[in-house]
Protein backbone atom coordinates (compact mmCIF):
# COMPACT_ATOMS: atom_id res chain seq x y z
CA UNK A 1 0.00 0.00 0.00
CA UNK A 2 1.36 3.38 -0.89
CA UNK A 3 1.75 5.77 2.04
CA UNK A 4 -1.04 8.34 2.30
CA UNK A 5 -2.35 11.15 4.42
CA UNK A 6 -5.31 10.14 6.58
CA UNK A 7 -8.15 12.43 7.60
CA UNK A 8 -11.07 11.83 9.95
CA UNK A 9 -13.46 14.76 9.51
CA UNK A 10 -16.47 15.06 11.82
CA UNK A 11 -18.76 16.95 9.47
CA UNK A 12 -19.77 16.56 5.89
CA UNK A 13 -18.51 20.02 4.99
CA UNK A 14 -15.15 19.33 6.50
CA UNK A 15 -14.97 16.10 4.52
CA UNK A 16 -15.91 17.81 1.27
CA UNK A 17 -13.17 20.35 1.82
CA UNK A 18 -10.61 17.54 1.93
CA UNK A 19 -11.50 16.01 -1.43
CA UNK A 20 -9.64 16.70 -4.64
CA UNK A 21 -11.42 17.56 -7.87
CA UNK A 22 -9.38 14.91 -9.68
CA UNK A 23 -10.04 11.18 -9.48
CA UNK A 24 -7.31 9.19 -7.85
CA UNK A 25 -5.80 11.90 -5.70
CA UNK A 26 -8.14 11.41 -2.78
CA UNK A 27 -10.41 8.53 -1.84
CA UNK A 28 -13.33 8.34 0.51
CA UNK A 29 -13.23 5.56 3.09
CA UNK A 30 -16.45 4.01 4.39
CA UNK A 31 -16.29 0.35 5.50
CA UNK A 32 -13.06 -0.08 3.59
CA UNK A 33 -13.93 -3.58 2.43
CA UNK A 34 -13.25 -2.60 -1.15
CA UNK A 35 -11.00 0.42 -0.84
CA UNK A 36 -8.41 -1.38 1.29
CA UNK A 37 -7.97 -4.21 -1.17
CA UNK A 38 -7.73 -1.72 -4.03
CA UNK A 39 -5.01 0.08 -2.13
CA UNK A 40 -3.17 -3.08 -1.12
CA UNK A 41 -3.07 -4.08 -4.76
CA UNK A 42 -1.95 -0.58 -5.77
CA UNK A 43 -5.01 -0.21 -7.99
CA UNK A 44 -5.90 2.83 -5.90
CA UNK A 45 -2.96 4.97 -4.79
CA UNK A 46 -4.54 8.05 -3.20
CA UNK A 47 -2.44 10.74 -1.61
CA UNK A 48 -5.15 11.29 0.98
CA UNK A 49 -7.82 9.02 2.44
CA UNK A 50 -10.86 10.68 3.95
CA UNK A 51 -12.64 8.48 6.49
CA UNK A 52 -16.38 9.17 6.66
CA UNK A 53 -17.18 7.04 9.67
CA UNK A 54 -17.16 9.88 12.21
CA UNK A 55 -19.78 11.85 10.32
CA UNK A 56 -22.97 11.18 12.28
CA UNK A 57 -25.31 12.69 9.68
CA UNK A 58 -24.44 9.87 7.23
CA UNK A 59 -25.84 7.21 9.53
CA UNK A 60 -29.26 5.81 10.25
CA UNK A 61 -32.47 4.77 8.55
CA UNK A 62 -35.53 7.03 8.92
CA UNK A 63 -38.95 7.24 7.37
CA UNK A 64 -40.67 10.52 6.46
CA UNK A 65 -43.31 11.67 4.02
CA UNK A 66 -40.91 11.38 1.09
CA UNK A 67 -40.10 7.80 1.88
CA UNK A 68 -37.35 5.81 3.51
CA UNK A 69 -33.99 7.51 3.94
CA UNK A 70 -31.00 5.22 4.25
CA UNK A 71 -27.80 6.96 5.34
CA UNK A 72 -24.77 6.14 3.22
CA UNK A 73 -22.89 4.72 6.20
CA UNK A 74 -25.64 2.21 7.03
CA UNK A 75 -23.94 -1.18 7.04
CA UNK A 76 -25.26 -4.07 5.03
CA UNK A 77 -26.07 -5.82 8.30
CA UNK A 78 -27.98 -2.83 9.71
CA UNK A 79 -29.96 -2.73 6.50
CA UNK A 80 -30.86 -6.40 6.91
CA UNK A 81 -31.95 -5.91 10.51
CA UNK A 82 -34.09 -2.83 9.93
CA UNK A 83 -37.82 -3.47 10.07
CA UNK A 84 -38.64 -0.94 7.39
CA UNK A 85 -36.77 -3.12 4.94
CA UNK A 86 -39.12 -6.05 5.35
CA UNK A 87 -41.21 -4.54 2.58
CA UNK A 88 -38.31 -4.59 0.19
CA UNK A 89 -37.28 -8.20 -0.34
CA UNK A 90 -35.65 -7.08 -3.58
CA UNK A 91 -33.12 -5.22 -1.48
CA UNK A 92 -32.78 -7.63 1.44
CA UNK A 93 -32.19 -10.57 -0.88
CA UNK A 94 -29.34 -8.63 -2.41
CA UNK A 95 -27.96 -7.88 1.05
CA UNK A 96 -28.28 -11.50 2.13
CA UNK A 97 -26.38 -12.47 -0.98
CA UNK A 98 -23.29 -10.88 0.51
CA UNK A 99 -22.80 -14.00 2.60
CA UNK A 100 -19.77 -12.91 4.60
CA UNK A 101 -20.71 -11.61 8.07
CA UNK A 102 -17.45 -9.67 8.14
CA UNK A 103 -18.28 -7.80 4.96
CA UNK A 104 -21.90 -7.29 6.01
CA UNK A 105 -20.74 -5.78 9.30
CA UNK A 106 -18.20 -3.44 7.72
CA UNK A 107 -19.51 -2.76 4.22
CA UNK A 108 -21.90 0.14 3.80
CA UNK A 109 -24.77 0.97 1.48
CA UNK A 110 -22.85 3.93 0.06
CA UNK A 111 -19.79 1.79 -0.39
CA UNK A 112 -21.76 -0.89 -2.16
CA UNK A 113 -23.03 1.64 -4.72
CA UNK A 114 -19.60 3.25 -5.14
CA UNK A 115 -17.45 0.09 -5.11
CA UNK A 116 -15.21 -0.51 -8.09
CA UNK A 117 -15.74 -3.30 -10.64
CA UNK A 118 -14.22 -6.72 -9.96
CA UNK A 119 -12.96 -7.19 -13.54
CA UNK A 120 -9.77 -9.22 -13.10
CA UNK A 121 -7.88 -7.19 -15.65
CA UNK A 122 -8.75 -4.02 -13.75
CA UNK A 123 -7.80 -5.60 -10.44
CA UNK A 124 -4.54 -6.90 -11.91
CA UNK A 125 -3.44 -3.43 -12.98
CA UNK A 126 -4.60 -3.11 -16.59
CA UNK A 127 -6.93 -0.17 -15.93
CA UNK A 128 -10.69 0.12 -15.79
CA UNK A 129 -10.97 -0.42 -19.54
CA UNK A 130 -8.43 -3.27 -19.46
CA UNK A 131 -5.90 -2.41 -22.13
CA UNK A 132 -2.32 -3.53 -22.47
CA UNK A 133 0.66 -1.25 -23.05
CA UNK A 134 -0.13 -1.13 -26.78
CA UNK A 135 -3.68 0.00 -26.08
CA UNK A 136 -5.16 -3.36 -27.07
CA UNK A 137 -8.47 -4.16 -25.35
CA UNK A 138 -7.79 -7.35 -23.41
CA UNK A 139 -11.29 -8.48 -22.52
CA UNK A 140 -12.75 -9.35 -25.95
CA UNK A 141 -9.84 -11.65 -26.80
CA UNK A 142 -9.06 -12.68 -23.26
CA UNK A 143 -10.89 -14.51 -20.52
CA UNK A 144 -14.24 -12.79 -20.33
CA UNK A 145 -16.27 -15.49 -18.57
CA UNK A 146 -17.40 -13.00 -15.90
CA UNK A 147 -17.78 -9.96 -18.15
CA UNK A 148 -20.66 -8.08 -19.72
CA UNK A 149 -23.21 -9.51 -22.13
CA UNK A 150 -25.10 -6.24 -22.49
CA UNK A 151 -23.83 -2.72 -22.95
CA UNK A 152 -20.54 -4.25 -23.97
CA UNK A 153 -19.89 -2.47 -27.27
CA UNK A 154 -16.76 -1.12 -25.63
CA UNK A 155 -14.66 0.43 -24.40
CA UNK A 156 -16.08 -0.93 -21.11
CA UNK A 157 -16.59 -4.68 -20.71
CA UNK A 158 -16.69 -5.07 -16.93
CA UNK A 159 -19.86 -5.64 -15.00
CA UNK A 160 -21.20 -3.30 -12.36
CA UNK A 161 -20.38 -4.90 -9.02
CA UNK A 162 -23.13 -3.42 -6.89
CA UNK A 163 -25.89 -5.80 -5.92
CA UNK A 164 -27.87 -2.92 -4.47
CA UNK A 165 -28.00 -0.98 -7.74
CA UNK A 166 -30.56 -3.18 -9.54
CA UNK A 167 -33.13 -3.43 -6.71
CA UNK A 168 -32.83 0.27 -5.91
CA UNK A 169 -33.42 1.16 -9.55
CA UNK A 170 -36.34 -1.23 -9.80
CA UNK A 171 -37.87 0.39 -6.71
CA UNK A 172 -37.40 3.87 -8.14
CA UNK A 173 -34.87 4.98 -5.52
CA UNK A 174 -32.84 8.17 -5.64
CA UNK A 175 -29.46 9.08 -4.20
CA UNK A 176 -28.50 12.30 -2.53
CA UNK A 177 -25.08 13.66 -3.30
CA UNK A 178 -23.20 16.42 -1.50
CA UNK A 179 -20.57 18.47 -3.29
CA UNK A 180 -18.61 21.69 -2.88
CA UNK A 181 -21.51 23.73 -4.26
CA UNK A 182 -24.38 22.08 -2.40
CA UNK A 183 -26.38 18.91 -2.74
CA UNK A 184 -28.15 17.27 -5.64
CA UNK A 185 -30.48 14.32 -5.96
CA UNK A 186 -30.58 11.93 -8.88
CA UNK A 187 -32.33 8.64 -9.60
CA UNK A 188 -30.12 5.65 -8.85
CA UNK A 189 -30.67 4.74 -12.50
CA UNK A 190 -28.63 7.80 -13.46
CA UNK A 191 -25.98 7.19 -10.83
CA UNK A 192 -24.39 4.37 -12.84
CA UNK A 193 -22.71 5.31 -16.11
CA UNK A 194 -20.56 3.60 -18.69
CA UNK A 195 -17.14 5.24 -18.77
CA UNK A 196 -15.80 6.25 -22.17
CA UNK A 197 -12.17 6.62 -21.20
CA UNK A 198 -9.71 5.80 -18.42
CA UNK A 199 -10.28 9.16 -16.75
CA UNK A 200 -13.93 8.48 -16.08
CA UNK A 201 -15.50 6.29 -13.46
CA UNK A 202 -18.49 4.02 -13.59
CA UNK A 203 -20.59 6.26 -11.35
CA UNK A 204 -21.95 9.78 -11.88
CA UNK A 205 -20.23 11.01 -8.74
CA UNK A 206 -17.64 13.73 -9.18
CA UNK A 207 -14.34 13.17 -7.39
CA UNK A 208 -15.10 15.82 -4.79
CA UNK A 209 -18.62 14.61 -4.02
CA UNK A 210 -19.95 12.31 -1.34
CA UNK A 211 -22.99 10.12 -1.56
CA UNK A 212 -24.98 10.94 1.57
CA UNK A 213 -28.17 8.91 1.41
CA UNK A 214 -30.43 6.67 -0.56
CA UNK A 215 -34.12 7.51 -0.66
CA UNK A 216 -36.73 4.87 -1.32
CA UNK A 217 -39.86 6.78 -2.37
CA UNK A 218 -43.04 6.27 -0.34
CA UNK A 219 -44.71 4.79 -3.41
CA UNK A 220 -42.20 1.94 -3.49
CA UNK A 221 -43.95 0.47 -0.47
CA UNK A 222 -46.83 -0.65 -2.67
CA UNK A 223 -44.68 -2.59 -5.10
CA UNK A 224 -44.42 -6.36 -5.23
CA UNK A 225 -40.69 -6.75 -5.49
CA UNK A 226 -38.03 -9.43 -5.56
CA UNK A 227 -34.49 -10.16 -6.58
CA UNK A 228 -33.14 -13.44 -7.90
CA UNK A 229 -29.40 -13.92 -7.87
CA UNK A 230 -27.51 -16.71 -9.60
CA UNK A 231 -24.40 -17.55 -7.63
CA UNK A 232 -22.22 -20.57 -8.05
CA UNK A 233 -21.45 -20.90 -4.36
CA UNK A 234 -23.30 -20.40 -1.10
CA UNK A 235 -20.01 -19.12 0.26
CA UNK A 236 -19.19 -15.45 -0.42
CA UNK A 237 -19.26 -15.29 -4.17
CA UNK A 238 -20.12 -12.78 -6.82
CA UNK A 239 -23.41 -13.28 -8.61
CA UNK A 240 -23.08 -14.43 -12.21
CA UNK A 241 -26.33 -12.68 -13.06
CA UNK A 242 -29.19 -11.18 -11.10
CA UNK A 243 -32.58 -9.69 -11.77
CA UNK A 244 -34.55 -7.31 -9.60
CA UNK A 245 -38.18 -6.66 -10.33
CA UNK A 246 -40.85 -4.38 -8.91
CA UNK A 247 -44.47 -4.76 -9.95
CA UNK A 248 -47.54 -2.68 -9.37
CA UNK A 249 -50.31 -5.24 -9.39
CA UNK A 250 -54.06 -4.90 -9.44
CA UNK A 251 -55.58 -8.26 -8.66
CA UNK A 252 -53.04 -10.33 -10.51
CA UNK A 253 -52.70 -7.94 -13.39
CA UNK A 254 -49.49 -6.00 -13.86
CA UNK A 255 -50.11 -2.27 -14.12
CA UNK A 256 -46.50 -1.19 -14.07
CA UNK A 257 -43.31 -3.19 -14.03
CA UNK A 258 -39.66 -2.57 -13.62
CA UNK A 259 -37.03 -5.20 -14.41
CA UNK A 260 -33.34 -4.50 -13.86
CA UNK A 261 -30.54 -6.95 -14.53
CA UNK A 262 -27.39 -7.01 -12.43
CA UNK A 263 -23.83 -8.22 -13.06
CA UNK A 264 -24.39 -8.50 -16.79
CA UNK A 265 -23.44 -5.01 -17.98
CA UNK A 266 -21.17 -2.13 -16.94
CA UNK A 267 -24.24 -0.64 -15.26
CA UNK A 268 -27.34 -2.19 -13.70
CA UNK A 269 -29.28 -2.92 -16.87
CA UNK A 270 -32.95 -1.90 -17.12
CA UNK A 271 -34.69 -4.46 -19.31
CA UNK A 272 -37.14 -2.08 -20.94
CA UNK A 273 -38.57 -4.43 -23.51
CA UNK A 274 -39.31 -6.98 -20.79
CA UNK A 275 -41.07 -4.23 -18.88
CA UNK A 276 -43.16 -3.37 -21.91
CA UNK A 277 -44.11 -6.98 -22.40
CA UNK A 278 -45.27 -7.36 -18.83
CA UNK A 279 -47.53 -4.34 -18.54
CA UNK A 280 -51.19 -5.21 -18.76
CA UNK A 281 -50.53 -8.95 -18.44
CA UNK A 282 -51.40 -11.39 -15.72
CA UNK A 283 -48.29 -12.97 -14.41
CA UNK A 284 -48.01 -16.64 -15.24
CA UNK A 285 -44.99 -18.87 -15.50
CA UNK A 286 -45.20 -18.51 -19.27
CA UNK A 287 -45.33 -14.72 -19.17
CA UNK A 288 -42.41 -14.69 -16.74
CA UNK A 289 -40.41 -16.87 -19.10
CA UNK A 290 -41.28 -14.60 -22.04
CA UNK A 291 -40.15 -11.58 -20.07
CA UNK A 292 -36.87 -13.37 -19.37
CA UNK A 293 -36.50 -14.03 -23.06
CA UNK A 294 -37.17 -10.36 -23.87
CA UNK A 295 -34.75 -9.15 -21.22
CA UNK A 296 -31.82 -10.83 -22.94
CA UNK A 297 -32.95 -10.44 -26.53
CA UNK A 298 -30.38 -7.72 -27.12
CA UNK A 299 -27.53 -9.55 -25.36
CA UNK A 300 -24.33 -9.93 -27.32
CA UNK A 301 -22.14 -12.33 -25.41
CA UNK A 302 -18.37 -12.27 -25.66
CA UNK A 303 -16.30 -15.34 -26.49
CA UNK A 304 -16.63 -17.02 -23.09
CA UNK A 305 -19.76 -15.72 -21.42
CA UNK A 306 -22.67 -16.93 -23.50
CA UNK A 307 -23.90 -18.92 -20.49
CA UNK A 308 -24.67 -15.66 -18.72
CA UNK A 309 -27.44 -14.97 -21.21
CA UNK A 310 -29.23 -18.07 -20.00
CA UNK A 311 -28.57 -17.13 -16.37
CA UNK A 312 -30.02 -13.64 -16.83
CA UNK A 313 -33.04 -15.10 -18.60
CA UNK A 314 -33.72 -17.49 -15.71
CA UNK A 315 -33.06 -14.80 -13.10
CA UNK A 316 -35.77 -12.60 -14.62
CA UNK A 317 -38.26 -15.43 -14.73
CA UNK A 318 -37.60 -16.49 -11.15
CA UNK A 319 -37.56 -12.94 -9.79
CA UNK A 320 -40.93 -12.24 -11.40
CA UNK A 321 -42.48 -15.38 -9.98
CA UNK A 322 -41.08 -14.58 -6.53
CA UNK A 323 -42.40 -11.01 -6.69
CA UNK A 324 -45.85 -12.14 -7.71
CA UNK A 325 -45.94 -14.59 -4.82
CA UNK A 326 -44.77 -12.13 -2.19
CA UNK A 327 -47.07 -9.50 -0.73
CA UNK A 328 -46.66 -5.81 -1.36
Amino acid sequence: MQAFEYAEPKTLNEALGLLSSRWGETEVLAGGTDLLSLMKNYVATPKRVVNLKRIAELRGIAEDSEGLRIGALTTVQELLEDQHLARFPALTTAAEGITSPQIRNMGTVGGDLCQRPRCWYFRNGFGLLARDAQGRALVPEGDNRYHAILGNEGPAYFVSASSFGPPLIALGARVRIAGPSGTREIPVAEFFVIPRNENEREIALRPNEILTEVILPATARELHNATYEVRQREFLDWPLATASVALELRERQIRRASVVLGHVAPIPWPALSATALLEGKTLTEEIAAQAGEQAVAAARPLSKNRYKVQLARVAVKRALLAAAQGGA
Binding site: W120, R136, L138, E141, G142, D143, R233, L236, D237, W238
Partner: peptide
Protein backbone atom coordinates in the same frame (compact mmCIF):
# COMPACT_ATOMS: atom_id res chain seq x y z
CA UNK B 1 -4.60 -15.06 -19.80
CA UNK B 2 -3.24 -16.13 -23.17
CA UNK B 3 -2.49 -12.61 -24.35
CA UNK B 4 -0.60 -11.26 -21.36
CA UNK B 5 0.58 -14.53 -19.82
CA UNK B 6 -0.78 -13.37 -16.46
CA UNK B 7 -2.67 -15.46 -13.99
CA UNK B 8 -6.07 -13.78 -13.69
CA UNK B 9 -7.15 -15.21 -10.36
CA UNK B 10 -4.19 -15.20 -7.94
CA UNK B 11 -6.55 -14.51 -5.03
CA UNK B 12 -9.19 -16.29 -3.00
CA UNK B 13 -11.96 -14.37 -4.72
CA UNK B 14 -11.92 -15.86 -8.19
CA UNK B 15 -9.75 -18.84 -7.32
CA UNK B 16 -12.78 -20.36 -5.71
CA UNK B 17 -12.98 -22.83 -2.84
CA UNK B 18 -16.05 -24.25 -1.16
CA UNK B 19 -17.48 -22.74 1.98
Amino acid sequence: DALTGQCLNPDMEFYKLAG
